[in-house]
Write a protein that binds this DNA or RNA. Structure first.
Lengths: 187, 187
DNA sequence: GTCGGCCTACCTACTGGTAGGTATTAAAGT
DNA sequence: ACTTTAATACCTACCAGTAGGTAGGCCGAC
């Protein structure tokens, strides 16, 4: 397997579980089976790794979202699939969306990483906005008045629901929190 | 000033800015003007400090919530004040609700702290549930069907909105995210 | 004379990061 | 064909800094 990719995969798991400060080059080295110093060959600074991580993550998510959009399903169904992404990202209530995990402690994060997080959120809101717009016209999402605000609220709800569910260790908390949104989807 | 309280105040600011790993006894010692080792006299382990922190925070918040509840204002107004608490907790977009800050990286957090977070969220949801129940009967909150789910969604929305706003560094992101909820409040 | 509250001095573990060396491979020069 | 060069991908050994935490002493107040 590609070492670089193995490093990214391992680091991603760690960050989504414990946040940016929750992993070290030392941890990575034992888990990937490579000496600590060798990691610096692939990612000179920890920030480089983090940046590569979130760029990869953002692209991966938006490949998924574009795939959903190009199928031209009803808006309600697209929204359901969006919620599913966040539900699945929770795993066994011990992982978060990488963006949520990183945006919670942006102390150690430099400008580039922070702007990547912002970019992720901007793109997500844009995608959601068009879904809510579609939902208003194809009537598969009810009570849509301002798609942009709905999109912002939806994204915040997903992130918050992940946080609450993870803290409680119970995915049911996620379900309860998003139930209201789901009930607006009409088949 | 009471040293113990000064430690808690300083630590709280730090945690709300940078999370649990974002402060150290070394930081505290310089900021409070006490030697590092002396902090261990007040809080033998860092976990002890964190626990004291969140217990104090939870109690403080619920004194505020009870104060709001006992005034017996319309539900819409109570909800507005709840939102205000979270808005103010954001500060200049560099602080979070202590619970949000802590629940984002629960690696280093032991059982006691985690159960305090859960307790906070349970109590918050209970408070919100009764507000939404009231809102349904006094008709100051619209579209209330399931108060419990509304409460869970509301709490998640607040936490998520804080996260998004903090990452973007713009309080307008908070406003946009909660606009939909606010629009359900009828005067 | 005991105890609260603080101190100095120190410890181990670990952090991210650097310096410099070593196989292996592939291309380039003659 | 044979050598040289260079890049890749790793290594050992080390660094300064910081983390949380401990041992034991000092001193004023009751």
């Amino acid at each position: 397997m590609d070492t670089r990719e193995a490093l990214l995969n391992t680091a991603e798991q760690a960050v989504r579980r414990w946040g940016y400060n929750g992993f070290s080059y030392g941890d990575l080295s034992t888990k990937v089976g490579i000496r600590k110093a060798s990691i610096h060959y692939h990612f000179p600074k920890k920030e480089d790794l983090a940046l590569a991580l979130i760029v990869r993550y953002r692209k991966a998510v938006f490949i998924m979202l574009e795939a959903i959009a190009t199928q031209h399903k009803p808006a309600g169904q697209q929204l359901t699939e969006f919620i599913n992404i966040y539900r699945q990202a929770l795993g066994g209530c011990d992982t978060l969306c990488l963006c949520v995990a990183l945006s919670s402690g942006p102390d150690s994060l430099n400008k580039d990483i922070l702007s990547e997080i912002t970019k992720f959120q901007t793109e997500a809101k844009a995608w959601l906005t068009s879904v809510f717009e579609l939902g208003r016209s194809d009537i598969t999402i009810t009570k849509v008045t301002d798609p942009e605000k709905d999109a912002a609220a939806c994204l915040a709800l997903m992130q918050g629901a992940q946080l609450v569910a993870r803290a409680g260790g119970d995915i049911e908390e996620f379900e309860t929190a998003v139930a209201g949104l789901i009930s607006r989807i009409s088949t």
